[in-house]
Design a protein around this nucleic acid. Sequence first.
DNA 1: GTCATACTACTCGGATAAGAACTGTCCGAGTGGGGTAGG
DNA 2: CCTACCCCACTCGGACAGTTCTTATCCGAGTAGTATGAC
Lengths: 159, 159
Amino acid sequence: MNEGVEWALHSCLNLSWATPGEAVTAGKLAAFYDLPAAYLNKQLQALARAGILTSTSGPRGGFRLARSPEEITLLDVVTAIEGPEDAFKCEQILAQGPGGRPDVDYRAHCVISQSMRSAELAWRRELAGRTLADLKATVERRFPHVPETTRNGFANVRP
Amino acid sequence: MNEGVEWALHSCLNLSWATPGEAVTAGKLAAFYDLPAAYLNKQLQALARAGILTSTSGPRGGFRLARSPEEITLLDVVTAIEGPEDAFKCEQILAQGPGGRPDVDYRAHCVISQSMRSAELAWRRELAGRTLADLKATVERRFPHVPETTRNGFANVRP
DNA sequence: GTCATACTACTCGGATAAGAACTGTCCGAGTGGGGTAGG
DNA sequence: CCTACCCCACTCGGACAGTTCTTATCCGAGTAGTATGAC
């Protein structure tokens, strides 16, 4: 799995603590964890294309959450970075085997494909059941100072 | 996910239908689905290292299942090919952030890391709950001719 | 006829290239704000 | 003092290299069976 997934998740969480109505630049988000700014920008672009973030150019520009944290699941973020395809891609090699026919869709009939897909659905279900708001609440319960620390970080950091 | 996972799963299933006590060469397993023999051999080596298959060199050599299909889970095969590490690798970037400390293991404390790991455990649980014997039984129920077809394939195929 | 021996063909095993994907970097298009000059 | 305009710094966005991982290939070490020749 791409490194960018971790960056994207942390950045989204940090954005949920930003001052409402204020955009945060990729540079500031990157400086937060000492990440390469241009590359993080690339991941944030993907999130914007997926409709999770909105982007603004120019001075006072940057990124902000496109909707409330309750409406952003971990699956949304992961899918935005990794793409929508399943990790296990059934190549339908049964079609090449004895008795295999080119006109049959083995993704629906092959037992192996079904089993792998079933496991992947369990994974997706777990991710889809957790929202950014859940994570936000948990962090704020465990570490109450984090929201303020994050806002201060955005204000003080010089990228 | 690696292409080899699909090949390995199909090959293990085919091996479960081989004549007992008889080894099947990588060449025959590859010819079954028209796969590159040398590369499939590499995957089978990984399965052998993981203790899922046993390998024999020389004439009349090849691969066979190291234990009964009831004792081989899909997770065993996937782990043998993909490696034991989680797909999502927490790089503990929180340690670089404000208030982050190098002596803390953030894989245990970071909420994001925990959530991703939780999803991955659901995936593993699903795979660990399905054995080669389950797949074998399902296929034999749906397509009773497959075991004989497979054995004939092993006997007739000229790699 | 029997046995020991050398040979040959066969198979796995690891070392070696080609290709793709991920990671990282750079510069241009567009935008908003601030400075400046005129009224 | 107020307003309109122009310039500039800032930010995202996509195009461009470096590195790692996956895919594919090849040849050598070891083995089992077989043919051969001596006894």
